[in-house]
Design a protein around this nucleic acid. Structure first.
Lengths: 241, 241
DNA sequence: GCAAAACCTTGATCTCGATCAAGGCGACTC
DNA sequence: GAGTCGCCTTGATCGAGATCAAGGTTTTGC
């Protein structure tokens, strides 16, 4: 859980109000946009939570910066079939799912640290501060791009292309700046069931495709949850796009 | 082409600057948000286009209100497999696809009327005007919701549920306020190939499922492009969610 | 109005991924 | 350390939807 663990430590080291000290430092997430006065106000209204893996994040009327960990977003059909419609990796910004017309559930896949603000404050600040609005828009458009990428994968890729694309996505989120030719290893924060629910497959197919990639030499399966890729480039070849 | 045709006439009747007279009237699209001065400025910088069915909409550095017609957004895999990742029905707002990281093509499915503004003007106005930013954000989040709905459909629905869901979507866009129990008929602005590329199926499967719905009595196929539904409720039952 | 082209439907067969089934491997509990 | 539980893997079989094939129908162009 490389990145996530690191973020977690940042948070614990910061004993100041800590409204997103960590994401501010990364100039990512929401907080880069605020001035000192606003940060002070936000710090007063914000609250930090640690949420254990497996917990559903309730709609508590807040927006949150995800300081560490991974969150999944799921839609269910009436008979229980499930589709994961997105992930949030730290340091993403969370809160939108609860405003969707059809219900979307958010659940922590790993232990998760959140910094939450009442929506009313953010909405008011967005009125004073066009940059904040633009930032929120940028985030929404990024999520839209990702959703559309996965639509193409769900609709048109084969099972093995789907699994390869998934591994590439996790690898990229783990280390965005990784050299394309060098090996990389990372923890999968998901069970086979979650992977299947994301890719529109069954767990058996996911398992078989991972085994195939292993016998190919494209990946090594260290221990069910830990994967190494020979290289980004090697797995990219198998993604179909 | 019910809705689209109506909008088309509005446009032709308006001989004034007409920067989105029609969408302004509907209090939808972008223009509801502007004041008189801004509307005047936009009218000067805007241009209206009529685009025939089948044309690809190029990235010309503008945002556009879609005054009439239907536009599809597609992503292609390297070997030519195609996935439609979204539709725009009048009076939607267009322009975002061109900012995606991976290329998304926009193509007119019907004859289309557009009202386009240079992006720089909209961006500047968004800075002065938080409501505009909020409107853009709302649009983006709506598109995101829709994309996620279709992710669930692509990943987890059967072929017949996909086709039923598609028909319901078109019916809703044709007449958003339609009574759920009364019959409705509408033109499909898409070929079977387009429907298949949207649902992640083949044209043969789409054709067969439509035939099945017809022999069910759920739909009537008037002439390949024109469909009547017995009722919204009836087709909703077959959507799986 | 006829020919060509584009699009759609239906049938026969095949295949990829689902389903059914059995067993393996850790991680906890007592 | 034996037993249970949750999760994963692998094999055998099945079936929904793809592919292959052959018309049929609608549109377009001359």
């Amino acid at each position: 859980m490389g990145v996530a663990m690191a973020a977690r430590q940042d948070v614990q080291q910061a004993d100041v109000p800590a409204i997103c000290k960590s994401c501010e430092a990364r100039q990512d997430g929401l907080c880069g946009a605020f001035n000192a006065r606003q940060l002070a106000e936000l710090a007063k209204a914000s609250s930090r939570h640690e949420v254990p893996a497996g917990t559903e994040l309730p709609d508590d009327g807040t927006y949150s910066n995800l300081l560490s960990g991974v969150v999944k977003l799921t839609r269910n059909l009436s008979d229980g079939r499930q589709q994961i419609v997105g992930f949030h990796f730290a340091p993403d910004f969370l809160g939108r799912p609860f405003e969707a017309k059809k219900p979307i559930r958010a659940e922590a896949l790993t232990n998760v640290a959140l910094c939450s603000f009442p929506r009313a404050i953010i909405d008011r600040m967005a009125n004073e501060m066009p940059e904040l609005g633009r930032l929120l828009l940028k985030h929404a458009l990024n999520e839209l791009d990702e959703a559309r990428d996965w639509m193409a994968a769900l609709g048109r890729k084969t099972a093995s292309e789907k699994v390869a694309s998934f591994l590439l996505m996790v690898a990229r989120n783990t280390d965005p700046a990784h050299h394309p030719a060098s090996p990389i290893s990372f923890d999968l924060p998901l069970t086979r069931t979650d992977i299947a629910d994301f890719l529109g497959l069954t767990i058996e197919t996911v398992s078989r495709e991972l085994s195939r990639l292993r016998s190919d030499g494209t990946i090594r399966i260290v221990n069910k949850r830990q994967i190494s890729l020979a290289s980004m480039a090697r797995i990219e070849e198998r993604c179909g796009d």
